[in-house]
């Protein structure tokens, strides 16, 4: 579906995407993970044929976006980071008008709009102005809009950023159904739980480069241990205490507010720390997640990145 070789985008001196290679297979759900400014959105826009690459090769649905832009975009479903529906028009009008931009006839669009409204759980908002919708509803409308042409690839740029937890879960459910239906998804996110839920395979980007690639589980296996212990001793003391327990566990990350100790057996590791007479203010034993992979690979947590 998508093949990129040494794909590069430079803005003058600044290299936003620095020679990345990846490919996406039909039916795959592919994630692009990384902090703000890593080059995720730039990559997405190049795949979406709305941003021309500086160099490298890029093939989407077997075509070159520099040459066949409209023909490629006609078979993509793009869900941008920022909702950009027309707020004056109604929900149904937005879907109808957007469908027209793909050359879709009214006879196709009329039943399709009903189907999309059901999918987005917006049936009773059909004739409401977009202005009056909640954030989660606007997001679902943008996603429904991206599906109006039965796209071969659905591209979601940070689909749940800025939504409350309940709205996120509704959205994940909808996206998961798309995936079950065999759609090819390309998703960027900086939420690790989102990537773990939705992506079969993902790449981690940092400063314009791909720093790791694999399934969520394999990345965790490769770059983190099974479990991790988070201990807090107060911001002033984390540094000195870290030195005294550096032999415990497989690996350690010292953050300003806490120390992370990676190990196969979290509880046993915590016991070992306490056995040295150290009493953490708080402690937490948990399974390792993509967040830990990211920390390992980039040296930063996603929040400060």
């Amino acid at each position: 579906m998508i093949t990129a070789r040494t794909l590069t985008k430079a803005y003058g001196e600044f290299i936003a995407v620095d020679g990345i290679d990846f490919s996406v297979a039909p039916g795959e759900s592919f994630g692009v993970l990384g902090p703000n400014g890593a080059g995720k959105s730039t990559t997405m826009r190049m795949i979406g044929a709305t941003l021309l690459r500086t160099s490298g090769e890029l093939s989407i649905l077997g075509k070159d976006p520099s040459i066949d832009g409209p023909a490629i975009r006609a078979h993509l479903g793009v869900v941008p980071q920022q909702d950009n529906n027309d707020t004056e028009l109604t929900v149904a009008e937005n879907l109808y008008i957007y469908g027209k931009y793909f050359g879709l006839p009214r006879s196709y669009l009329t039943p399709k709009i009903d189907e999309l409204l059901a999918f987005a759980q917006l049936e009773d908002k059909r004739d409401a102005k977009v202005d009056s919708l909640s954030g989660g509803m606007k997001r679902r409308l943008t996603i429904a809009r991206g599906l109006v042409n039965d796209p071969s690839i659905v591209m979601l740029d940070e689909p749940t950023t800025g939504l409350d937890p309940q709205a996120r879960h509704i959205l994940w459910d909808r996206l998961f159904r798309l995936k079950e239906d065999g759609a090819t998804l390309v998703i960027t996110t900086h939420y690790m739980d989102e990537a773990e839920q939705l992506c079969d395979r993902l790449v981690v980007m940092d400063r314009g480069r791909i720093v790791a690639e694999g399934s969520p589980a394999s990345l965790i296996r490769q770059y983190a241990s099974r479990e991790v212990v988070e201990v807090r001793f107060g911001s002033g003391r984390n540094g000195e205490i870290a030195a005294s327990i550096s032999d415990i566990g497989d690996r350690m990350e010292v953050l300003p507010d806490r120390i992370l100790v990676y190990a196969d057996q979290g509880e046993a590791t915590l016991q070992a720390i306490v056995a040295r007479g150290l009493m953490p203010l708080t402690s937490l034993v948990r399974r390792c997640s993509l967040e830990d992979v990211f920390l390992r690979l980039t040296g930063r947590t996603l929040e400060d990145a």
Binding site: Y101, L104, F119, L178
Partner: peptide, 28 residues
Amino acid sequence: MSIGTQPTGRLHVDVRRVGRIGALYVAE
């Protein structure tokens, strides 16, 4: 009801038509 498995929409997509009269859709 499913969305992704119905390829019918793909067959209706008409790039050449948009190429010809896309500006009119924008005007609409």
